[in-house]
Design a protein around this nucleic acid. Structure first.
Length: 542
RNA sequence: GUGCCCGUAGCUCAAUCGGAUAGAGCAACAGCCUUCUAAGCUGUAGGUUAGUGGUUCGAUUCCACUCGGGCAUACCA
């Protein structure tokens, strides 16, 4: 529908030159009586032309050349909106396009040929993934899906660090549990990793080596074993949610390949780094940030900023057109430094999009559950997945704008799992599948021969929603918002359920029945495609 | 103190880069199954969009201040 109007306006702009001066957009009005599409062009031109908006609207309308078979009414409403009413026949034609594109329907070639990298999860292997990581994981994977739908070739990447203090403490935690199992009386430090998984790892080392590891250092077999086991679990947790990273990037390789040193040298050559108090500082003030920051500590170890910058340089060098970083809000202070550093080195930091999600507050029966991997009082992503299933987890984390602070009451989620919106969508899909099976027995088929018969308000509403899908995918990808897809699908499913209730197929005149089957089949495709983007299953039966 | 995010119905959240009468789900109440899945549909009720000003044809959206919450504010990552 929009495509048609854009064409018409382009033609008209040749006559009314002032139309070229504004960005003409068409919105779907909230209220049905305001038409199928609406333009605020006249209002936007008020200031520029110094004329009344309704008067401008009149002039625009009288210059438009439209096909009566496509648009049957145009009116001026309110302060100067131009509302377009499409003919039911035209609206119904979308069915054909959907049926012929099938699984491809909704994909676009807008960014064909471009490469994107989505870095997400990136939790260090010190413990199982928590519910808190779930939001990051699900959102990141869905963003990657969305980018693929608009044409990008996407690499999913996981950045991790298996060195440093955290990992030393991890190894030593395992070592102490191991010694404990050998009958030693150990005082286990409060700031060590308390979780039972540490004991499990210690146990499997005991089974494998007996008491031969008594004198093994914490950073030897203990750390290695812990890292391997934990990573295995993390990957398994992600896989249960259909999340598979293509690249695991080890921070250590930045050191081994000399990339850290190169980065410092470059900063120094450009006069952007200096020594003070035995440490190396980055002149961020010169780059427009608030204060200078340390990039190499007086101990000689870099702070996180330096490897982060070096890491992003590798992404640039790998040729990505778009690099997405997905972080929790605890990172909100760090990325401006990294971006400024990249800019200073001549990289186009606009290609890096940092998406920050707010934290999930986990509640249990109204009580806030504080999460800490160290203290092991967390709820794991696995537990959540077992409790409510992968579909609900994925839908739940996708359905909210990432900038909201999300409250999640686990006890409530269990109780309400039957009434979760994801079932509403899946139910619509299952109902359609059931119709499609039924019509075989009745010797009916889907037919697009007489689509103009789809003229009731329920049918037209459903059709109008089908029209929106492509735009929703594009907008969701452009704004990096997954919740739009959820909101859209809920609207679509609602209009289908209404259609289902009021527009029967059995007992209806054959031509109309077959047009309705076609409409149902098209709806099935769009629901399924939408759920596919979200990574949620579309069951044939429920 | 400063920076970022947030405050919308009893609860969880939407609202198309400023649009028309602020919408859904859950919870509550009243209806609808001898024909395609009642995990559905129809209806009722629920709001000073935290507050006060400002910007303009028009503000939940932008700006300023106030109140309240989250996250940061390291030579931790």
């Amino acid at each position: 529908m929009k495509k048609y109007l854009h064409k018409v306006f382009e033609e008209t702009a040749k006559k009314l030159e002032y139309l070229n001066g504004i960005n003409i957009t068409f919105d779907v009005p909230k209220i049905e009586t305001h038409g199928d599409l609406s333009s605020n062009a006249a209002m936007l031109l008020t200031k520029q032309l110094k004329r009344k908006p309704r008067e401008i609207a009149e002039e625009i309308i009288s210059s438009l050349k439209i096909d009566e078979k496509v648009i049957h009414k145009i009116e001026i409403a309110g302060p100067g909106f131009i509302n377009f009413f499409f003919t039911p026949e035209f609206v119904a034609q979308i069915t054909k396009e959907i049926l012929s594109s099938g699984e491809e329907y909704g994909k676009s070639k807008k960014h064909n040929g471009k490469k994107a990298n989505v870095e997400f999860v990136s939790a260090n292997p010190t413990g199982p993934l928590t519910v808190g990581h779930g939001r990051n994981a699900v959102f990141g994977d869905t963003i990657a899906n969305l980018l693929e739908w608009v044409g990008y070739s996407v690499d999913r990447e996981y950045y991790f660090n298996n060195a440093g203090r955290q990992m030393r403490v991890l190894g030593d935690s395992v070592r102490l549990r191991y010694l404990e199992l050998l009958g030693n009386n150990i005082e286990f430090p409060a700031d060590y990793y308390q979780g039972d998984y540490i004991k499990d790892i210690a146990k499997s080392l005991l089974d494998e080596y007996g008491d031969k590891l008594i004198n093994e250092p914490a950073e030897g077999k203990f750390k290695d074993k812990a890292e391997n086991e934990i990573f295995k679990d993390i990957k398994a947790s992600l896989e249960r949610l259909k999340i598979i990273h293509k690249i695991f990037y080890n921070e250590n390789s930045l050191y081994e390949e000399g990339k850290i040193k190169n980065t410092i040298d470059t900063f120094k050559e450009k006069g952007l780094a200096y020594e003070k108090d035995n440490a190396t500082w980055l002149k961020l003030t010169e780059l427009g940030n608030e204060q200078d920051k340390v990039i190499v500590k007086s101990t000689g170890e870099p702070t996180y900023r330096l490897p982060d910058i070096a890491y992003h340089i590798t992404k640039f060098n790998r040729g990505y057109d778009l690099m997405i970083d997905i972080f929790g809000s605890d990172h909100n202070a760090t990325y401006p430094d990294v971006l400024a550093g990249l800019r200073a080195l001549g990289f186009d930091s606009d290609k890096v999009k940092v998406l920050i999600h707010q934290f999930v507050t986990i509640m249990y029966d109204g009580e806030v559950v504080k999460m800490s991997t160290r203290k092991a009082n967390y709820i794991t992503l696995d537990q959540l997945e077992e409790e409510v299933g992968s579909d609900v987890v994925r839908y739940f984390f996708n359905m909210r704008n990432i900038s909201t602070h999300m409250n999640f009451d686990l006890a409530l989620a269990k109780k309400q799992s039957d009434e979760n919106p994801v079932f509403y969508l899946q139910y619509a899909h299952a109902r359609i599948c059931s119709i499609l099976k039924m019509i075989e027995k009745e010797e009916l088929k889907a037919s697009t021969e007489n689509l103009e018969l789809l003229a009731t308000s329920e049918e037209q509403q459903l059709l109008r929603n089908l029209h929106k899908f492509k735009d929703e995918v594009l907008l969701s990808a452009e704004f990096f918002e997954t919740h739009r897809i959820c909101a859209y699908l809920e609207e679509l499913a609602a209009s289908f359920h209404k259609f289902y209730t009021f527009c029967r197929i059995l007992g209806t005149e054959r031509k109309l029945a077959e047009a309705r089957v076609a409409l149902a089949a098209a709806t099935k495709i769009v629901i399924k495609n939408g759920l596919t983007i979200l990574g949620v299953n579309a069951p044939e039966r429920m």
